[in-house]
Every structure is written in C-alpha cells, then in structure tokens.
Simulated assay, not measured.
Amino acid sequence: MNTELHIDEFEQMLTSVDVADVYLKQLFDIYHQRLLANSNACQKLNRRGIPVDMIVAYRIGICDRKLNYYVQTSNRPDGAGFRGTLRRVGLTKPTGHEIFRGCIVEPVFEGDKLIAACGVKLICPSRPAPRIIQWYRQSVYITPVQFSIMAWGGRYATD
C-alpha cells in the first residue's frame, strides 16, 4: 500500500477547502433554520410580501442571539475556529456580539462562497443603531450587490 499517495491527496484536499467558507456557510444555515423555526417572524415577513417560498429560495435567516446554543465555546478548538473566523471577517464585534443581531438576514453566495449579506431590522432599535446593515467579504467582494430583501421591504427598511 502506497501511503504517500494518500498523504498527497489529503494535502491537496486541505489546500482546496477554505475553512472560513465552511464556517460562514454554517452560520447562515443556522440563521436560516432559526427563521424557519420562528413562525412569528415568518408571518411578519409574509405580511410584508416575503412568503416562505422566497425565504427558502433566498436562504433568508434571522439573527436572534441564539448562536451560542449552536456553536461551541471559544475554549474548544472548533468553537475557537468558528468564532475566530467570524471576528476576522467582521461578522462579530470585538465583544463577540453578532453585527446582525435582531436582523432578518439575506446572504448572497457565488457558488458556495459567501460574498455579502444584508440585515434589516424589522423593529426600530431603541438605541441609535443602523436599520440596515450591509456586509461585504473583503477578499471576495468586487462589485456592489443588489440585495433582494431591500427591494421587497423598501419602506420597512427605511422607516
């Protein structure tokens, strides 16, 4: 048995997979599943012209501050990698809080690579905070992205 062949294949696989892409996809999958599980938020979006089939098609999610239930803590290797990736790409603040807290979130993928995301708060924040948050992945972002969620809920996003 030639073990060098297996090691070469393994090393080639490691260089072809970007761990950040895996973590970012997991994050937006969590947001998407959280929205689908939240019937109240789905009803609010439906009243604003965004039915469940659009939620599924566009992988829209909600950042409901429950990420800690789904991601290991930073003292575990996988949790540290996940949280470190989110901080490096700017999806969490230095305090560890998610930038999309309280937002309905629309990710934009190019193939399997997340390139941008837009968060819209459906409830006007009590503290001074932006109502719309746009995030662009620095290493991938090339041109402005047209977010569907902003067009669908135009007047709600700017109230």
Rank of each mutant, 00 (worst) to 15 (best):
C63W: 00
I30L: 15
R131T: 10
I50T: 09
W135C: 13
I99F: 07
L91K: 05
T95G: 03
R88Y: 00
A20Y: 02
R137H: 10
G61R: 05
P125E: 04
L24A: 06
K44H: 10
G79T: 08
K66T: 06
A129H: 13
T143R: 04
G154P: 10
W135N: 10
I30R: 13
H97C: 01
E110R: 03
R87W: 06
I62W: 05
V89N: 12
L36N: 07
T158M: 11
R83Q: 15
P94M: 01
F109W: 12
Q12V: 15
L35W: 03
P77N: 05
A157I: 06
I142T: 08
L86E: 04
P51Q: 03
I50L: 14
R127F: 07
K25R: 12
P128D: 15
R83E: 09
Y23H: 14
Y31V: 02
A116L: 04
E98W: 00
D112W: 04
D29A: 13
I104T: 15
C63G: 08
H32N: 05
K66M: 06
T95P: 01
C42K: 03
F100N: 06
I133G: 01
K113S: 13
S126G: 08
L67E: 14
F28G: 10
I133Q: 03
G79H: 08
L67G: 08
D112G: 09
L45W: 07
D53R: 11
L14T: 00
Y156W: 15
V52G: 00
I133P: 01
D29H: 10
G153Y: 03
R76M: 14
D159P: 00
Q146I: 04
T143I: 06
L24H: 04
W135L: 11
T85E: 01
C103L: 09
L14G: 00
P130S: 12
G61C: 12
P77A: 04
Q33V: 08
K25I: 02
P77C: 03
K113G: 00
Y58A: 01
R48L: 15
Y156G: 14
K93G: 00
Q26Y: 07
Q43V: 14
A80D: 15
V17S: 07
V140K: 02
R155W: 00
A116V: 02
